[in-house]
Design a protein around this nucleic acid. Structure first.
Lengths: 343, 343
DNA sequence: TGTTAGCACTCTATCAGTTCGAGTGCTAAG
DNA sequence: CTTAGCACTCGAACTGATAGAGTGCTAACA
């Protein structure tokens, strides 16, 4: 449908606009190296590209900017990935150099570095915590009516929840309970915990412990909602750096969406494998219609999966981000798998 | 120095500007109920107030706005506290109604509600975590080379840190270590933990455990920095709602300062008792010269102390915020003391 | 002597008109 | 098919001109 020359012009136009954030004119294009035609020829081609919907004008006598369709075509067909610059690699590797052992810490730091490197906002989704497996359960009494339940998982993640206990419960009963729980629940995945708790331990507890009912109920309650979410943001404020976002109202909406983790499912294509690009209105949320989101999944071991995303303006440096995310994804997969599986 | 009438005019001027965010003119003031003088008289008085530095003009023929000194005087002498509206009280009380047992959770929620109620940003500082007292220590092995250390404090706070252990360390040694640690360190405050660890347990550990050196070092390392901070923000984005902040650059600086907890000591007068108001340039940070910060301290039990702060534009609704903070402070003190001391 | 009506003056915000330049589309010649 | 040339369009930036809000001052009044 498009000639070689039109493809070239489209590519250079998008590249230039990504760089300058200004509508691109025919004269400007004619000056570029590799452009061996006159501005008039380019004008004709631009008109054709506009006719086919790849480019737009902001007003009748302005230069062209890429349309939604134009970006999409650019991303799908014109993107030649770049090797990641040495300098970026050095920075990214620094995450692992400090011998941090916690998955969470590593992901958090990666989010920070990614946002610094790109000047966009990064969102990192850790592995689904509910798949983690219980390694140890313990209950520590705090005061006569209160105790804290602690669950350690195989990934080193620690969940804890304060809950109330019958004030006159004696220590040996608590110890008994902990023993029973550990005996029965180690090796169970967190998302099964609630069910298994009931199936496996209720009868046993009833047998051994006075007042099991009250205790059991509040304990179960405490375990019900693992409210720790595993979303990490880097550089939320970078949005403010982008000249594309000058309207305070827009910024507000955008930050609102990102503030809480609530909209994650709408922002990120969860469960998708490999690299995904959502441009402008391809995003589910209206507040993000001027943004593009590039996501890539990464693996930990064989089953666990996480997601890395970069959110920026539609006029995003797709080439750079794509290569960067490719790199980070495989890097993170490698390092976390090593850590997770205990070498 | 100022006559009754001047005081009245100053007060009404500041009140009006706080409400409207527009320079206040003499005609406007003359229309207010309680103003029984003509605009000409008011003009004379305004000129006098300006002469004494309580008011300013944005340009020669504009209305007046309060100066730094004007706000200060208003806050110090003209503020008649309001009772907190019933409606606000209902909302605030809702924090405690859901029977949450964790100090942290309560503080976090309070931050959220305060920001919703005021449309400003709230910052809540929890009690100093380093004063909390160790209730239980435990170490859970994760994989051959890795373990997680868990510290539970009397407030129900749980600190955990993953650290590496010699891969061939046997389980009984770990158990021995945990026993020794618990025996010696329960009852120690977190800020003493590092020191006491060395003083009290090093010798004992050396005696009982092979390879204590390696183990001890990484364990100590893990406990070194309790990196959980106890700062909670509510409504960071509310800044964007205030018409006073239209300059994106200013907003950036401001959010930058608040993003990380690093600047807390400069933003809040830590250690100060009771209610404090910092207006505009009274703030330590240049980025906050257009903001006012109202803080109030609250107590938990007899020793612990926390801080509640509201950050808004200089043109802040001082009266409302002051009453609100007074209320919240005593409320939080009461409820947390009850919780903290186990009823 | 304090208050107020009246008026000239000042400054901003706004709007229309103008110019400049970047960019386009079209035509005609190469 | 390409390109030079040219008329045309539109936004951005500047210029007055005007209206309106507000001030300061003066003179009259209670």
């Amino acid at each position: 449908m498009l000639t070689e020359r039109q493809l070239l012009i489209l590519k250079v136009t998008v590249d230039d606009y990504i760089q300058s954030a200004q509508p691109v004119g025919s004269n400007q294009l004619a000056k570029k190296p590799g452009m061996s035609f006159s501005s008039a020829t380019i004008r004709n081609e631009l008109a054709e590209l506009e006719g086919q919907g790849y480019l737009e004008k902001t007003h009748t006598s302005s230069g062209r900017i890429p349309s939604q369709k134009g970006y999409r075509y650019y991303v799908d067909h014109l993107l030649t990935p770049n090797p990641v610059p040495e300098n970026d690699i050095v920075q990214l590797r620094s995450v692992f150099e400090e011998k941090v052992n916690e998955t969470e810490e590593i992901i958090k730091r990666s989010a920070g570095i990614l946002s610094e490197l790109t000047n966009y906002t990064s969102i990192l989704l850790g592995p689904d915590i509910r798949k983690h497996i219980v390694k140890k359960l313990s209950i520590v009494p705090l005061s006569p009516g209160m105790a804290v339940a602690i669950i350690v998982t195989d990934s080193g993640h620690v969940e804890n929840r304060v809950f109330s206990i019958p004030p006159d419960l004696n220590a040996s009963d608590i110890e008994k309970m902990v023993n029973i729980l550990n005996e029965r629940l180690i090796g169970v995945a967190l998302h099964d915990l609630h069910k298994r708790l009931e199936q496996e331990t209720l009868a046993l507890l009833r047998q051994h412990i006075e007042r099991y009912g009250e205790l059991f109920r509040t304990f179960q309650q405490a375990l019900l909602l693992p409210h720790t979410d595993n979303v990490y943001y880097g550089g939320k404020l970078n949005i403010l750096k982008q000249p594309d976002f000058h309207d305070i109202q827009k910024i507000r909406e955008l930050m609102d969406v990102m503030e809480e983790g609530k909209h994650i499912p709408e922002i990120l294509p969860i469960g998708a494998q490999g690299l995904q690009i959502r441009i402008g209105s391809e995003n589910a949320l209206a507040a993000m219609e001027d943004c593009s989101v590039i996501t890539v999944s990464y693996d930990i071991g064989d089953e666990q999966m996480g997601t890395i995303a970069i959110v920026g303006p539609k006029r995003m440096d797709y080439r750079r981000i794509v290569s960067l995310l490719d790199y980070v994804s495989s890097d993170l997969s490698k390092e976390l798998t090593r850590l997770f599986q205990g070498k």
